[in-house]
């Protein structure tokens, strides 16, 4: 271990823990998921960076959106995202979640993912190389250090707008709002 970081570990153990043990939810959206098996197995071995895949969203704190997002997939993504415990980080992987990519004029693909859930970082490319995931992860470390990876806080603050955007595309959502939509008045 780097001795210079020992002080940091004592100061902010929680943050350092989150930073070096990212559990990625193994959720397959679109074609980018084909890059993930070599990344997590021996060829590129993501555990060097502390990233491991987990089975359920309840255990995860890193969400990779790997490819185009159709309307049905968006619903599953929102459900999965809301199930994950805080703190949680979202990375958009590939061109399609950024601005639609090659599906920019499709009738069934939402173009900008960050209108519906907060996204902390993007990895551009079609397809990005597996090394790009590691570059993304190291950038995410920097963001966590500087407390700039605050998408989950933003989701709580602006939940009203996110929910309105989601309902505009998906129609009435059948589950209860995650956070209260109306701001409570202070009790005097």
């Amino acid at each position: 271990m780097d001795r210079n970081k020992i002080l940091k570990w004592f100061k902010e153990p929680g943050k350092m823990g989150h930073k070096y043990s990212l559990s990625a939810i193994y959720f397959c959206t679109g074609c980018g998921i084909i890059e993930v098996p070599p990344v997590i197995t021996t060829r590129w071995d993501a555990e060097r960076f502390g990233v491991i895949p987990v089975a359920t969203p309840r255990h995860a704190n890193l969400f990779l959106i790997t490819g185009y997002v159709s309307i049905k997939t968006l619903k599953a993504i929102i459900k999965t995202y809301e199930m994950m415990p805080d703190p949680k980080f979202v990375i958009g992987f590939g061109s399609c979640p950024i601005n639609g990519g090659m599906y920019w004029d499709s009738y069934n693909t939402i173009k900008h993912l960050d209108k519906y859930i907060p996204v902390d970082g993007w990895i551009a490319g079609c397809m990005p190389r597996p090394e790009a995931i590691f570059i993304g992860v190291t950038h995410l470390w920097t963001l966590i250090d500087k407390e700039m990876a605050d998408g989950y806080k933003k989701y709580k603050e602006k939940y009203k707008y996110y929910r309105e955007n989601q309902e505009k595309v998906l129609g009435k959502l059948e589950w209860e709002p995650l956070f209260p939509l109306e701001e409570k008045e202070d009790v005097k």
């Binding site: 920019w104 009738y107 173009k111 960050d114 907060p118 602006k158 707008y161 996110y162």
Partner: peptide, 21 residues
């Protein structure tokens, strides 16, 4: 069915959260 016009009219009418405030 004009898919380009549909996606322009519908998906681009959803505003980013930052602009909505």
């Amino acid at each position: 069915f004009d898919t380009r016009e549909y996606s322009k009219n519908f998906y681009d009418s959803v505003l980013p959260v930052e602009d909505r405030e």
